[in-house]
């Protein structure tokens, strides 16, 4: 759910690294949000990734994935991508296709809903065959 669902994962989102891979994603909301208002989950060829081996990068800054809920000062502009660095897995092969299922939850901090006044959850799941670069 979001005005820009189609564009979360670009065709060149998946890249091999010596220690695993990176996956770049874009937010699907119409305005920028801090990383603390996002949470995501990636599944590659049916395998969930081990989040303890993941880092998130935005604006050139890299943090342990578990830090995301506290990153209210690290904003992701709508035309910029954030990158998950996934380590501790078999490095991906360049040129090979992988099935990526990516769920991006956005907690909209200015729209409070329901009796508890929780932030609106705008959740999107995309499944894409991506060629590793």
């Amino acid at each position: 759910m979001g005005p820009l669902d189609n564009f979360i994962l670009a065709d060149d989102a998946l890249q091999a690294t010596p220690t695993g891979f990176t996956l770049q994603f874009h937010s699907h909301w119409y305005r920028s949000l801090p990383l603390s208002c996002m949470s995501c989950k990636a599944i590659i060829n049916g395998q969930a990734i081990d989040e303890s081996e993941v880092f998130i990068e935005a604006n050139g800054n890299k943090y342990p994935f578990s830090e995301m809920p506290n990153l209210y000062k690290e904003w992701l502009f709508i035309t910029d991508g954030a990158r998950l660095h996934v380590n501790g897995v078999e490095p991906l092969q360049k040129g090979k296709q992988y099935n990526i299922e990516f769920k991006l939850d956005l907690f909209i901090p200015y729209i409070l809903v329901g009796r508890e006044g929780n932030p609106l959850l705008a959740s999107s799941t995309v499944t894409k065959q991506l060629t590793c670069n």
Binding site: S36, F107, P109
Partner: peptide, 9 residues
């Protein structure tokens, strides 16, 4: 302008 009432859980 917005008011980002709750940026951390």
């Amino acid at each position: 302008f917005m008011l980002d009432y709750t940026m951390t859980k």
